[in-house]
Amino acid sequence: MIQVMVDFDRCDANGTCAALMPDVFQIKADGQLELLNAEIDDSREGELEEVILCCPVGAIAHS
């Protein structure tokens, strides 16, 4: 399993993560980001890599 980490101090709720992995990240009704799943399967490493590289404020990391 891969641990997903969000730096909420940096997070700007851009939502690119929520568009690329909607079952892991979500924009809530108040416009803020919520991490739905802090652990994902190893098979999704590529998807998470894309999310990490496409976060405009560099707020996402993994174990």
Partner: peptide
């Protein structure tokens, strides 16, 4: 314009 939750969901669906 704003509507961030709706937008994020539609953006995901547009894939």
């Amino acid at each position: 314009f704003e509507r961030r939750q709706h937008f994020a969901r539609l953006r995901a669906a547009l894939r």
